[in-house]
Write a protein that binds this DNA or RNA. Structure first.
Lengths: 261, 261
DNA sequence: TAGTGGTCTAGACCACGCC
DNA sequence: GCGTGGTCTAGACCACTAC
C-alpha cells in the first residue's frame, strides 16, 4: 500500500515475502539460533502491513519448526540439539549388565529418568493386528516417558499379550533389571526376529502433551514387533521420537550400499 | 456470543474446540478419508463464530496433516497410502541385475520414472564434512526426483568428490545401468561400510516445491555416507522421504530386540 | 503498569474452478 | 456468474510476565 520506509522484499503475498525474508535471515545467520526476533509491532512497522499479516508470516515459520513463541516475551530462533538414537544399540548382548542399557549409555553425563505406568487394556487395532490377537484378548501396556535433564525425550510404550505375562515383573510399574525381553525369554518366549516400521508424521495432541512438543515438531513413530522362533509375536514396542531431539543413526558393513541406479 | 442453534463442544478456545471436534470426527470415521468437510461458511454458522476463527481451527488440522484444502472446492480428509521403503533393500547382491533395482522392484505394477540432473558444485557444509573435503574441493552432484504414477515420490541426491569420478558415467545425466557404486568400485573405491543418519523435520520450501508436498507433511531426511576399506568416504547419498508417502521398514534377526529395561 | 503475544470480530477484495 | 477458499485490513480485549 502507500507505505513510507517500508521494507521491500521478494514476490508473492505479503506473508510469503515476510516469511521468506525472515527465513533467509535465519539461514544466513543474521538471526542466529536462540536470537530474539523483532516484535510483531516492529515487524508491522517494518513491512508496512497489519499485525494479522505479520502473524500469518510468523505462523509459517512456527509451523516449519524454525521459530518458537515464548509468550509474552517474543519469538526466538529455534535451537536444535538432537541426541543420537541408535537402533542397533537396542540390540544388547547377553548376559545383560545394567551398564549396557541403551538409554543410559547413550547419554552419559546427562541425567536420565523415566516414568512407568502399567495397565491392562484393550489393544488398539494397530497393536492387536501385530500381536495377532483375537477379539476380546487383552494386553499389558507398559507406558514410559523418558526424560533427559528433566526434559521429555521420548515415549516408549510396550504391549504384551496378557496371557503371557500375567503375574510377572512385566506387570510391575518399575524398571526391570534384566529387561522385559529376558523375562519373556525365561517364560519360553525368546525373540529371535523383529520387524521394524518407521513412520514420519505430525504428532497427535496427546503426544504434544506428553512430550511437551513445540508447534512444528514432527515425530518419528517407530513400531517394533518381536517374534519367537516359532513365529509367534510376543511384544510390540512403540517409540515416539521428537524430530527436534533425535537423530536416528546406524551403521552397515560388508555390503555395497546401493541407493543408486 | 449470543448464538442460536450453535454447536457446543469441549473446553478451551473456540478454535481449539472446533478443531478438536473435527479431529474427533476424523478419528471415529464420521469424516472418512477423502470425505469433504463442511465449507467455511457452514462451519461459521454451525459453531457461531466468525470465519477467521473457523479458518484458524482448520489451519490447525492442516498443519497436523489431517486435512487438505483443494481450492476452490473445499477441505478434504487426507488419505494416506504410504509406500514401503526398505533400507536393507538398498543392499543389493552382486552381480547386479537391473531387475534387482530397489526402486523398481519395490513398486511393481506401478509406473516408476525419475529425473536426473548432474552438476559440478561446491559442496554444502553438510556434504563437505561427511566427504572430508578440503576448502575449494568440488563435488559431482547427481540430483534425482523419483516419480510413481506421475507423482513425486522421493528425492535422491548423491554427491561424489570430483577428483574421483571425473569423466565417468557418474557425470552423465542418465541412469547408470550397473549402478554408481559399481562404477566407484571399478575405479578402486569399493564401499564396504556405510553410516546412516535419519532426521525427522519439516521440509524446506525447496523440498515442498520439488516433492509437491501438502502443508503439514513432515519428511524423513536420510543421509548415507559410504566408505572404502581404507575408511575413505567416497559418496554421500541424501534421500528425502515425504512422511505421507513412506513407511520405512526393516527386519532384524538372531538377536534379542531390547528397547526395554 | 507497560508491553508482549493470543484470540476474536467484522468486513472487504481477490483468484480460481465449475456451471 | 456463483461459490469456494486465500489474503488482508482495522480494531478490540485478554493473559501473562517482567519491571
Amino acid at each position: 500500500m502507500g507505505g513510507m520506509a517500508v521494507k521491500k522484499v521478494g514476490r508473492g503475498t505479503y506473508k510469503q515475502q515476510i516469511s521468506d525474508d525472515l527465513r533467509q535471515q535465519i539461514a544466513d545467520g543474521t538471526l542466529a539460533p536462540g536470537a530474539k526476533l523483532p516484535t510483531e509491532a516492529q515487524l508491522t512497522d517494518e513491512y508496512g502491513v497489519t499485525r494479522g499479516t505479520v502473524r500469518a508470516a510468523l505462523d509459517i515459520l512456527v509451523n516449519e519448526g524454525l521459530i518458537v513463541s515464548k509468550r509474552p516475551v517474543g519469538y526466538f530462533v529455534r535451537e536444535r540439539k538432537p541426541m543420537v538414537f541408535r537402533p542397533q544399540a537396542e540390540f544388547r548382548p547377553r548376559p545383560y549388565t545394567p551398564e549396557m542399557d541403551a538409554f543410559m549409555t547413550e547419554h552419559q553425563g546427562r541425567d536420565p529418568e523415566q516414568t512407568i505406568e502399567v495397565s491392562i487394556a484393550e489393544p488398539t487395532a494397530e497393536v492387536a493386528k501385530r500381536l495377532q490377537l483375537k477379539a476380546g484378548q487383552l494386553v499389558v501396556a507398559r507406558r514410559r516417558v523418558r526424560y533427559l535433564d528433566g526434559e521429555p525425550f521420548n515415549i516408549n510404550d510396550s504391549f504384551f499379550p496378557l496371557d503371557l505375562v500375567r503375574d510377572t515383573p512385566i506387570m510391575r510399574p518399575e524398571s526391570i533389571a534384566e529387561g522385559a525381553n529376558e523375562v519373556l525369554a525365561s517364560l519360553g518366549y525368546r525373540q529371535v526376529r523383529a520387524i521394524d516400521e518407521l513412520y514420519v508424521r505430525m504428532p497427535t495432541p496427546d503426544e504434544v502433551r506428553r512430550l511437551e512438543l513445540a508447534p512444528g515438531t514432527p515425530i518419528g513413530y517407530h513400531v517394533c514387533t518381536g517374534y519367537t522362533e516359532e513365529g509367534k509375536p510376543v511384544r510390540v514396542a512403540i517409540t515416539v521420537l521428537p524430530g527436534d531431539r533425535h537423530v536416528i543413526s546406524y551403521e552397515r558393513r560388508r555390503e555395497t550400499p546401493a541407493d543408486e541406479s
